[in-house]
Design a protein around this nucleic acid. Structure first.
Lengths: 234, 234
DNA sequence: GTAGATTTTTTGAGTAGTCAAAACTTCGGG
DNA sequence: CCCGAAGTTTTGACTACTCAAAAAATCTAC
């Protein structure tokens, strides 16, 4: 079968880093459940068979625990590695926005490539220059060098109370979606007033740039934090 | 054999970019001569057979002209691509030194990886932030976006006249060598006084940090530019 | 101008990652 | 409880890159 040797640690390939990131993301999205090979294949746009064979490779390297027909979970080593990649990704994204003045809608694919090649040294320099940041431009928390992430627990536009909220985090990072949010003024840090919702209509939000409607799928991607606003408090 | 199809241009791999860079460097070092597969193998630390087979791949892609047993030369397309890589490499190096404050002795390997992944957009931002620079931290000229390089023609410490010179360029970019130059104050922009040379002894140089001797191999790596110094002119 | 050394090319094989499609599990419904 | 749908794994094949070692070409020296 797939013999699990004591195994050297021969520098993970960027493909392996991508798989670990994907598994981590799935694990976050559905806590407790094992991640199926099907979901991984979907997330990485590979065929199911490819994902299966990579799971064996990962299991062999001690990065996931894999049960045939039973999905995978990250091991300690796998999660640690995923965190290191995520840290690189998010610091790079923030760097691209803050230092190079790139748009938050375009930094994701760039970071997707850079995360595999920036050295520890370069990362440290970026981190220092940015002032040891804790969140990236999309509001995603940046893991510490030791591998700890802040687990935030914000409601989305779909689940929050009506009223004033500060945009905290945007989950969908496709360029089109982010550009649309830009035009609406719905970006992390900005305040938006969420109108009364009916149970399956769009969510209506008011910002400095006017009123905007989001369908339920879009609304679920936008996480917010209620604003303590004395003037509006009942 | 190796059929030369009209050929699509399916995004060069980083391996291909590395081969083109190496061929370009060899071509510069010995102008006019065709580059042998042996030199390429040496430069990239692969076996001769690997270099040969890659030359066929490159020839097939229209990037080099390859004559069995007769070496290669870059085609127009090959040289254009080499220039694009070199431009990325050198802008990245300068960026790492100027913006991230890294040491000139450590940026080469970092740039070696980054050059394959930075987007045109990111490169443009770095270029702008650096003020459209024309030389990198080692004194290497930065190709323009259109692919033109300044061809400088400086003597080395081995071939220059005795007297005052400004360090213009350092060819050997190994970390150890560059750190040594740092300690000697022999870095691009600094002025050094070259002593009388005998025909096969070391070259002695005086800088603000004192007198330093370089063996002939080292001296050949350091290119200089005579300083017009009225006080010293005969 | 040929023998021996050197260099280059070929051959055969291996690793990492991928796909298409066949084979196999598992699970939900009747 | 068993059957078909859905999901998973296996198989065989392909690309890009690599090495080791055998074979071929070229160069050098006498």
């Amino acid at each position: 079968m797939f013999e699990r040797s004591p195994a050297e640690r021969p520098m993970p390939t960027s493909t392996i880093e991508d798989y670990l990131k994907a598994i981590y993301a799935e694990q976050l999205a559905r806590p407790g459940e094992r991640v199926t090979t099907g979901r991984i294949a979907e997330a990485l746009s590979v065929t199911p068979g490819t994902a299966t064979s990579m799971m064996k490779t990962l299991a062999n390297a001690g990065l996931v625990s894999y049960e045939p027909y039973g999905g995978v979970t990250l091991t300690g080593a796998g999660e640690a590695l995923a965190m290191r990649v995520l840290r690189r990704h998010r610091i790079v994204e923030l760097f691209l926005v803050e230092v190079l003045g790139m748009d938050w809608s375009e930094v994701h694919p760039e970071a997707e490539r850079l995360e595999h090649v920036v050295s520890e040294k370069m990362l440290e320099r970026m981190d220092a220059l940015l002032g040891r940041p804790t969140f990236d431009p999309h509001g995603d928390p940046i893991p510490t060098a030791r591998g700890d992430v802040a687990t935030t627990d914000h409601p989305s536009l779909l689940t929050c109370e009506p009223g004033r909220h500060r945009v905290a985090r945007v989950l969908d990072q496709s360029a089109d979606f982010l550009r649309r949010l830009d035009r609406c003024g719905v970006v992390p840090g900005e305040v938006a007033t969420v109108g009364a919702r009916d149970d399956d209509g769009p969510v209506v939000v008011e910002t400095t740039s006017g009123r905007h409607a989001f369908d339920r799928a879009a609304a679920a991607q936008i996480l917010v934090e209620p604003v303590q606003d004395p003037a509006t408090r009942s």
